[in-house]
Design a binder for these strands. Structure first.
Length: 426
RNA sequence: CGGGGUGUAGCGCAGCCUGGUAGCGCGCCUGGUUUGGGUCCAGGAUGUCGGGGGUUCAAAUCCUCUCACCCCGACCA
């Protein structure tokens, strides 16, 4: 993609509403922009990141034996009256009427809808287990939206729902999701700690929150200091769960197994949540199957959420410096930024155009800064949007045949021939 | 919802106290200049001063109502 025809309105100054790094950087890099309180429009650069994250989540969900569906954003109140949550959900639910004055709502979650679908089609234990998920926009009319996409009112969520015949089956589903989550977050260069948690309005009996440690997190957690030393690449669920972590509501110093000197407290950003809640929805919504003993049994359920749009912010919180974002390669909007330091220099531009073509042919996602601007502004913009690699070509390169390759993460710069620069990156 | 704050050009802000022709920096447009870390020079465009009502000869400025947004707290992916 050529910068000259792309659309990423970068800002030199920080918009006054942005208090935390991720919010600031998302606005400054032109990834997204606020439409109204807690509601954002995603611009091309931000959308690419959102799509990369979505795809990683999708792949890991599929590997964990789940099937993707797509449920609507608008739901009928009826289903929620059956589950009893229409009243309980309160003002956080955005309610509306259609032209027939039928009560509708913008879905804050989808237990009712998916359970109803399941109930209508699945009648036998032989069809179990089933794990169905979708990645869809949700709306929760938060008391106080803040921190950009970290706590928006409208947000993109992956929500998975498991249906099993027995408690043991449900536990296996729960475990499969825990494992999928560890892999999912690791692929984004995040160490997310599964913290035993109290379950909120969704209700339930067994529940973990996945928290990313960050000063700007909204919840307080207690954890074993060893969490800081884990290697994302070799992380396993067993290892993660062998360490102590608890939310402040559940943490009890009296029964905490971690000696005081190893116990740390920090703020966490919740990026995922897994619940087991048994038959809480299957009974009221009539999700029964025929068991092997010819008896109707309500199915055992769990639900598993990941805040997809929140993850964009969370990843930036974990990966940035004073100059801008440092994207992990797996979610970067482009893999490499190609900087033409002087577009008016014909020979220089020829070199750049040539390398750009080669990148495209090699299937390397490249943002080619071919705008007519000073070099300083280009460096600043490229650091800000945080692509993992930069290839810098200026008039100097014309004589030498060398370009500079910069690793945004480490800041390391090396001089290479144009040929080698591409090899370095691929 | 309770407490605090802000609305003036696309962005960041000054002006308001003490009423009298609406300003600065960045950005934008034109021309030139410069080209390895946000070049420099010259010229130019852009505002219902968030909105309604009131006071006054006169309101960005004073009074009043209202809307929006932000920050602190309780809730959540």
């Amino acid at each position: 993609m050529r910068s000259s025809v792309y659309f990423y309105p970068t800002l030199k100054e920080t918009p006054q509403e942005a208090q935390i790094a991720s919010h600031r950087l998302m606005l400054r890099s032109g990834m997204m922009t606020q439409v109204t309180s807690g509601i954002y429009a995603w611009l091309p650069l931000g959308l690419r990141v959102l799509q990369k994250i979505t795809q990683i989540i999708r792949e890991e969900q599929n590997k964990a034996g789940s099937l993707e569906v797509m449920m609507p954003t608008i739901q009928p109140a009826e289903l929620w009256e059956k589950s009893g949550r229409y009243h309980d959900y309160g003002k956080e639910m955005l309610r509306m009427q259609d032209r027939h004055e039928r009560e509708m709502l913008y879905g804050p979650t989808a237990e009712e809808v998916i359970t109803d679908i399941f109930a209508r089609f699945v009648k036998s234990y032989r069809d179990l287990p089933k794990r169905l998920y979708n990645i869809q926009w949700k709306f929760r009319d938060e008391i106080r939206p803040r921190f950009g996409v970290m706590r928006g009112r409208e947000f993109l969520m992956k929500d998975n729902y498991s249906f099993d015949l027995t408690f043991e089956g449900a536990k296996a589903s729960y475990q499969a999701m825990l494992e999928a989550y560890v892999k999912t977050f690791a692929r984004m260069d995040l160490t997310a700690i599964p913290v035993r948690a109290a379950s909120g309005a969704i209700g339930g009996e067994l529940s973990h929150e996945f928290q990313i440690l960050a000063e700007t997190g909204e919840s307080e957690i207690f954890y074993d200091v060893d969490y800081k030393n884990l290697d994302v690449n070799t992380l396993t669920l067993d290892r993660l769960q062998s360490l102590y972590a608890a939310s402040d509501e559940l943490h009890d110093p009296k029964i905490c197994p971690v000696p005081e000197e190893r116990l740390k407290t920090a703020r966490g950003i919740e990026v995922g949540h897994v619940f087991y809640f048994g038959t809480k929805y299957s009974i009221p919504l009539g999700a029964y199957v025929m068991g092997p003993d010819n008896k109707q049994v309500p199915v055992e359920m769990g639900s598993y959420g990941i805040g997809v749009s929140r993850l964009v912010g969370a990843i930036i919180e974990a990966h940035h410096d004073e100059n801008g974002i440092k994207w992990p390669i797996s979610v970067a909007p482009f893999k490499v930024g190609l900087l033409n330091l002087n577009v008016k220099d014909k020979a220089c531009t020829e070199l750049c155009d040539g390398l750009y073509e080669k990148c495209l042919q090699a299937g390397v996602e490249v943002l080619y800064d071919d705008r007519d601007m000073g070099p300083g502004a280009k460096f600043a913009d490229m650091d800000l949007i945080g692509l993992p690699w930069q290839i810098i070509i200026g008039p100097r390169s014309v004589g030498s045949g060398q370009c500079e390759v910069k690793n945004r993460r480490t800041g390391e710069k090396i001089e290479l021939s144009l040929e080698d620069s591409l090899k370095q990156i691929v």
